[in-house]
Design a protein around this nucleic acid. Structure first.
Length: 435
RNA sequence: GCCGCGUUCGUCUAGUGGUCCAGGACAUAACAUUCUCAAUGUUAAGAUCACGGGUUCGACUCCCGUACGCGGUACCA
């Protein structure tokens, strides 16, 4: 029997990072085994539905490149992939159980009669261990709610069986309900799937990550300028580790070596700092043309996005996220507002006088300015003025950019253009910022 | 309360009885390089492997207990 795994989110909002994390392992495990990855929407709690979340689920998986083989809009041979469209099916099995006296009606709902003696055991793929529960801890539980919708515990079992799911990969908050599921499989005389209960991702307070906590949605990371490759790589490193100890690897590489045996059963805290580092690594590894393209896709509204190509090699090592491009380069496209504070951080006296000298030197420089001559000119000026070379160049930088941190100085000057640079310096001269 | 899962540097982790006075990565610090910031390189600091008992010639690794955290105990998933 070929491997089939499913991701079964509830459409209760834009999927948060924990859902994306689970999706990654579903996908990788399926691909590793030449199996199928299935998306099923579990919308049986009508009170928590959030309109539009379905689209966000599709968009998230799509962005991350975790393509599913079957799903709500990619029908397979297993009927609808949205539980609210499968009500008749659940009803049918509920009746069957009632007829066998394994379930009963209770105030408009239907309850399953749990087995009370013995224990229920299964082998979990995470930690490669057996887990057992005494059966007397399992109360009779509702399978069909009084509104006619099935509960998670019921719909999940029915669908997993009917959709021929072979491996249930889900969060370990479901460990406690697994005995219920197993009892259901038994009552229906079905073969249960294998289980892999992933640890949960936790927030800074160590409790389960949730939107409540301000957990970001997976798509927020896209908006923040993270690359999907970096996010996937980072997510892979939570709970799982590469058998060769690699920190940076592709999805394809991960698929080749994936095994639940390399999974850690302890819950992990999502630390964005490391994600930023990884993202920077991916950015730097990328060829300039590709990075240019990615930046242009990201900067949809940037007025000068067609002109950024020459800038890419200059900023490549200075950005950690695509969004960092904007604060780092905006002064190249428009005259910045000068801030007195910034100049006061420079270790230079008589800035006004120095500016005059700079302007007269630049005016007498032959255009187009040459990098070598430019550098010599100001090294000499630093010497004459008894300034440290670094301070001299920092003064130049701030004078035309208004910023303490910029791409390389001379290249930035060339990008802005000689005339514009001079114009900015003259405007600065006229202002009273350097008094 | 009861049931279950978990517990290795601040964080993510390696480790399946000896090769671990615990290795790597991020973050941190220092130095080098440098026109800034980065990037890069080198080094440093950082974990009595939650605690207490066993088992064993030997335990981070196996067993038991305790503590703490998390989850379940819903007509939420």
């Amino acid at each position: 029997m070929s491997v089939r795994v499913r991701l079964a989110p509830s459409p209760t909002g834009s999927p948060h990072i924990g859902t994306a994390w689970q999706a990654l392992f579903d996908y990788v495990f399926a691909k590793k085994n030449n199996g199928k990855f299935i998306l099923r929407l579990e919308d049986t709690d009508r009170t928590r539905l959030v309109p539009g979340s379905e689209q966000q689920i599709y968009e998230t998986l799509n962005w991350l490149g975790l393509d599913y083989d079957e799903g709500p809009e990619k029908k397979g041979d297993f009927g609808p992939y949205i539980q609210s469209e499968r009500l008749e099916i659940y009803k049918k099995y509920a009746i069957q159980l009632q007829e066998k006296d394994l379930a009963y009606e209770d105030e408009g709902a239907v309850r399953f009669k749990t087995i009370k003696d013995g224990q229920t055991t299964w082998h979990d793929l995470i930690g490669d261990k057996d887990i057992s529960f005494p059966n007397n801890t399992q109360e009779d539980f509702v399978i069909i709610k009084s509104d006619g919708y099935p509960t998670y515990n019921f719909a999940n079992v029915i669908d997993d069986h009917l959709m021929e799911i072979t491996h249930v990969v889900r969060g370990n908050e479901f460990i406690s309900s697994t005995p219920k599921h197993l009892m259901l499989y038994k009552a229906l005389d079905w073969q249960p799937p294998q289980f892999a209960h992933l640890p949960v991702l936790v927030g800074s307070d160590r409790s389960k990550l949730s939107k409540r906590h301000g957990a970001k949605s997976a798509l927020d990371y896209k908006k923040d300028g993270f690359l999907k490759e970096a996010l996937i790589n980072f997510l892979a490193l939570l709970g799982w580790s590469h058998p060769e100890g690699k920190e940076i690897f592709s999805l394809e590489d991960m698929i080749k070596v994936f095994d639940f045996k390399n999974f850690n059963a302890a819950s992990a805290y999502f630390d964005e700092t490391k994600l930023e580092w990884l993202n920077g690594e991916y950015l730097r590894l990328m060829p300039d043309e590709q990075l240019t393209k990615r930046l242009q896709e990201f900067l949809v509204d940037h007025p000068a996005k067609e002109k950024i190509a020459p800038l890419v090699p200059l900023i490549k090592e200075r950005i950690k996220k695509l969004s960092d491009f904007i604060p780092l380069t905006f002064f190249l496209f428009e005259e910045p507002d000068y801030d007195k504070e910034v100049f006061s951080k420079l270790k230079i006296e008589n800035q006004e006088e120095l500016l005059n000298k700079v302007i007269s030197s630049l005016t007498s420089l032959e255009k187009p300015w040459d990098a070598k001559i430019f550098e010599e000119t100001f090294r000499k000026m630093a010497q004459d003025q008894d300034l440290r070379v670094g301070d001299m160049f920092q003064f130049l930088r701030v004078s035309f950019s208004g910023q303490l941190v910029t791409p390389p100085l001379f290249e930035s000057i060339k990008f802005v253009g000689e005339d514009e640079v001079l114009k900015r310096l003259e405007n600065l001269q006229k202002s009273n910022i350097l008094d």
